[in-house]
């Protein structure tokens, strides 16, 4: 009796673990699946009720048609460019700030951290008009560089604070050991700190990418012709049939998912630094 209970204990735990995993996965995957269903299921599938969980007829038609809508391709590229600029700039600017926060004690450090976060306290709506005006003056209006810059502003505070945590997770002595054995500061940073911080830096990149990819307000306000995908879809899709909207939704989800999939290797601490 007691032996049976003992032996069932690990399996009960495993059951709990797996049901948790399944629940979380479903939470994420079911909506995506439904969107995909709507996108590929054709016109009838979308309006059918009660909904079938299996596709009635799979046809890439709506997606194909949708992709051929004028401007979708360009908007998609624009989004990628803006997100790329955001990722690169927020890592290039945020990581050094995070490194400084992690390694050095300086007066006003906490105030600085607060200030970094405070940049997010201004509602973008208030800044919209002055931003538009100055962007027009600077020649940044309606350009992906402009959108990327604004998205960088949005992503940067998180990038700085997240990378601070990441760099704090890299023991200082490792860097010091590199110095003693002949590295310059930059050399030690590149040879020792970066490889160990890579998982965290990848996570930060994902974060910046998603922030930019999903952002719609600034992208709508600051562009007219050169829309990002979100901004473009917002204007186009509200007037389109439902299955086109699903196709648009899928197109919005996929690149983020693919990007996260691409960097997933770096999202986990491979060297056991954080786990040991």
């Amino acid at each position: 009796m007691s032996a049976a209970r003992l032996s069932s204990f690990p399996s009960a735990r495993r059951l709990l673990l797996w049901s948790g995993i399944v629940a979380v996965s479903l939470w994420v995957l079911v909506p995506i699946y439904l969107v995909a269903l709507g996108a590929f299921g054709g016109r009838e599938g979308v309006y059918q009720w009660p909904k079938s969980f299996l596709p009635l007829e799979v046809s890439p038609d709506s997606v194909m048609v949708f992709l051929q809508i004028q401007g979708v391709g360009t908007a998609f590229l624009n989004s990628l460019i803006a997100a790329g600029i955001t990722v690169v700039l927020s890592i290039l600017l945020g990581a050094p700030a995070g490194y400084a926060l992690a390694r050095y004690d300086f007066p006003g450090k906490n105030a600085y951290r607060l200030l970094v976060l405070l940049t997010r306290a201004f509602p973008l709506a208030i800044l919209a008009l002055p931003l538009t005006v100055s962007f027009i003056r600077l020649g940044l209006y309606d350009s992906m560089l402009g959108v990327g810059l604004i998205h960088t502003v949005l992503a940067l505070p998180f990038a700085a604070l997240v990378t601070q945590g990441v760099f704090m997770g890299v023991p200082r002595e490792l860097e010091e050991a590199a110095w003693v054995f002949g590295c310059s500061r930059i050399g030690a940073f590149l040879k020792v700190v970066v490889p160990l911080a890579l998982p965290g830096l990848a996570a930060t990149a994902v974060f910046a990418f998603v922030i930019s990819w999903n952002e719609v307000f600034a992208a709508s306000v600051l562009t007219v012709q050169n829309r990002t995908l979100t901004a473009y879809l917002l204007t186009v899709l509200s007037e389109s049939p439902l299955h086109y909207q699903f196709a648009g939704g899928l197109l919005l989800i996929l690149p983020s998912a693919i990007f996260i999939f691409a960097v997933r290797r770096y999202l986990f601490a491979i060297w056991g630094v954080s786990s040991k």
Binding site: E176, A177, F181
Partner: peptide, 20 residues
């Protein structure tokens, strides 16, 4: 002078071996 320019080697109290 920077550590690298002092021409010495060191064993750290908490080892500091590179995990990667």
């Amino acid at each position: 002078l920077a550590p690298k320019d002092r021409g010495l080697a060191m064993v750290f109290q908490n080892y500091a071996v590179f995990p990667h």
